[in-house]
Simulated scan of single mutants.
Amino acid sequence: MSYYYFYYLVIIIFSNSISVFCQEQRIYRELITEPTKFTPEYKRIISHDELPVVKNELSITLKLYLESHGSVWYNVFHKGRWETSNISIPALWLKPNDSVPFPSCSNTGNSNIGLAMDGYGFLLNRWYHIAYTISNLDKRMNFYMDGEWVGSFSIKYIQGQSFIFNDGPLYIGWHRWKGFTGQISNFRYYNFRLSHSEVLMDYSGEDPTKYNDNDESSKKYFIDLTIAFFLGIMVLAGGLFIHKIIIRRRYQEIPNPM
């Protein structure tokens, strides 16, 4: 009976070896599904603990409908404790009067830096699909409108600077200043960087987590899986070796009837 426990232990160790190396999953949470009305006074606040765990990358996609332009800078989404810090990743602002998008972020060189998307102001009373992606691996923030890649910001000092992620809440439709008047639907928060192809999948209503054309992520997953496989083989081989030793010792302990 003890042998069964021994083999059961080997199987547990083998399974845990694989799970340790393959535990990172590409997931998202849809925070808003149906069209939701936002006003300068109405907002959504999502705590950090309610969001997928982010290490070095994230993406946000949503559909946005503006009913009026603001007279001051106003916010679509912002993550960070604005009461005590200017650190913000991710963040999307709209400029006064014409609602030109200004996707922004924080890095070790500047707490508020981004893209002034002049010429891409949102028209009123129509829906737009927006995608915001950021990656410390690529050192780049990308911005998409209706599936089209329209802007990018890259860190210049690759070795010396990096984006700063934070554990503050996610504000939707509001910041320290008033928010916008309009609607938001299909607001998704991803724990990885969407590629352009995956942005197009989200734009068409598909699930990008079921498909991965990110070469670096694919290579990393293959390497982790390979390591987990060989680690499991080593554990299994070691278990069999120990098992043989146990059998040999028990055989030697059997008294000779002669």
Rank of each mutant, 00 (worst) to 15 (best):
V235A: 06
V72S: 14
S71R: 09
Y132K: 04
F153C: 05
E41K: 11
Q183G: 11
V54I: 12
R29I: 06
Y132F: 14
F102C: 06
P257A: 11
Y4D: 14
L170R: 01
N86R: 10
W177A: 13
Q183H: 14
I60G: 01
M145I: 09
I27F: 11
S68L: 12
V76W: 06
G147P: 02
N86D: 02
T33F: 15
M117G: 03
S68G: 12
Y28T: 02
Y190N: 05
A228V: 09
L66E: 02
S19R: 10
F21L: 09
K156V: 01
T108D: 03
G238K: 03
S2Q: 15
Y120L: 09
D213Y: 13
I113E: 00
I46C: 09
T209H: 10
K55I: 06
L123W: 11
L66I: 10
R250I: 09
N112V: 07
G238N: 03
P103L: 11
E206F: 15
D98M: 11
K178M: 08
I246S: 14
S68H: 15
V150F: 13
G182F: 04
K139R: 07
D215C: 13
S71F: 08
E198L: 11
L231K: 04
V53E: 04
T108A: 05
F14Y: 04
D215Q: 12
W73C: 12
V76L: 11
Q23W: 10
Y5K: 15
S217L: 11
I32Y: 11
H129Q: 12
Y157T: 02
D224K: 14
F153M: 04
Y8C: 14
K244P: 00
H48N: 06
P90G: 10
G168Q: 07
A116L: 08
E83A: 10
I242L: 12
E206V: 09
W174K: 05
E206W: 12
I164R: 03
S99M: 10
F180Q: 03
F6K: 15
N56D: 01
N186L: 12
T61F: 06
G80C: 05
K37G: 07
Q25L: 14
Y42T: 05
L51D: 01
Y28A: 03
I164D: 01
I246A: 14
M234I: 02
N142V: 03
N214M: 07
T108F: 06
Y8N: 11
E30P: 01
Y128H: 12
I134A: 02
K219N: 02
S47Y: 07
A116M: 08
A237P: 00
S47C: 02
I246H: 15
D167A: 13
K63I: 03
L194S: 08
G168K: 08
I13D: 01
A91I: 04
I164P: 00
N186F: 14
P96L: 15
T84S: 05
S185Q: 10
Y132A: 01
Y171I: 02
N166P: 01
